[in-house]
Design a protein around this nucleic acid. Structure first.
Lengths: 212, 212
DNA sequence: ATCTAAAAATAAACACCGTTTAGTAATTTT
DNA sequence: AAAATTACTAAACGGTGTTTATTTTTAGAT
């Protein structure tokens, strides 16, 4: 009488298959190439079948969104080895930048595109958990910095938000090719990275001065 | 023998008409509703006609892009009344945030979407002038702050870039609904604005501490 | 084994999209 | 008035997300 159970497994399997194909298309050919029809062809089913497993395309994109967050969190894991909270904070920025420049498409999905957020909107508490957790890693580190006597008189939440805003702004400008105003833009990819690096270096200096 | 002249005027007029319709569609119904077919219907011509005046859709979007920059620059104009460079810097941030939150679509067009930048890519020098000029306003102000003795030992270009990154990050997160991790998100619009305001307040404090 | 009801998959259509091509209509030049 | 140029468009191509009606497959009961 394990029919029901098997069917449920099959359903999950199919969902996974769809998501895998979507992710593959996304990573191989970019956001625009995630189309229901492309996914359908990849899994060798008709486009309509996909709608038996997902409400609409946004739900698929949102699922990819979650996967992206897991990848980001994985970038943060090695940070535990930095015992000094300030050092960890700085390295967290480097990890974040590395994640963004190595996975620009994923980054765009997580923090630039509005589609995945639209899908959430209502039931925020359940769905934005991953975002909360990632932000909390930052929050905790900032908090520990303050316990060590840094950043006196600044609100932890606001300061964390400020740091995130800066780092996100830098990554977002870099990825969207908006840093090209730098005159010596010969080999672009390299120059953008260089600008991001020296800008972050400056930020680092600023944060160090703020220690006192 | 003013036939040629009249025809040239007509051509310009038609271009304007197309752009006006595009802008109207954009502001009224959002980025996605800028379609060649919608524009064509609005100006009561066939879709194919539009291609006699613009190479492709990207060229139209890029033209809107330029208009958006003019709007941004207009937001900066009242800043001349602040004679103290640091005060002007802070107010510039307020003006930028105001521009972004009042014109989220336009902001997205200018600094988030990659389409308009794609269109530029090659001939950067001619086309990214507006961007250069806007950045220069910031650069000059930061420079004047340093001449007044602030921000000692920091590279002007890097510091300007850092400030822009922060402000852009804040606006970008706000507009794309990525600030919703704040728990007390009841009336969203309001809360997002509040978070942006207090984050910017913190940034302001940080910059003030950096004066010395 | 057969019939039936439920579940799964799909073909085909709808309403869009950007863009191109080939042909028509209007205008200017000769 | 005829020829040449310019302005315009109908129709098609290949794409998109999504829905509806229909068919195929599967499961359970007789």
């Amino acid at each position: 009488m394990g029919v029901k159970e098997r069917k449920e497994r099959d359903k999950v399997e199919m969902r996974d298959k769809i998501l895998q194909s979507a992710q593959h298309l996304f990573l191989a050919k970019g956001f625009d190439q995630i189309s229901i029809r492309n996914i359908a062809e990849a899994i060798e089913y008709s486009p309509a079948t996909i709608y038996l497993y997902f409400k609409d395309k946004n739900e698929i994109i949102h699922a990819l969104h979650l996967d992206g967050f897991r990848l980001l969190v994985r970038h943060f894991e090695p940070l535990v080895k930095f015992t000094d909270p300030f050092e960890r904070l700085i390295e967290m920025g480097n990890a974040y930048i590395k994640f963004a420049t190595n996975n620009p498409g994923v980054y765009e999905l997580l923090f630039v595109r509005t589609e995945p957020m639209k899908h959430i909107t209502n039931r925020l508490d359940e769905e934005w958990k991953e975002g909360d957790r990632a932000f909390d890693v930052l929050f905790q580190t900032v908090s520990q910095c303050q316990q060590s006597g840094h950043f006196k008189g600044l609100d932890t939440q606001n300061l964390s938000m400020m740091i995130w805003s800066f780092i996100h702004g830098l990554c977002s400008l870099g990825i969207s090719n908006h840093i090209t105003h730098v005159k010596e833009a010969r080999d672009k990819k390299l120059v953008v990275d260089a600008v991001m690096a020296s800008t972050y270096q400056t930020f680092q200096t600023v944060m160090e001065r703020l220690k006192a």
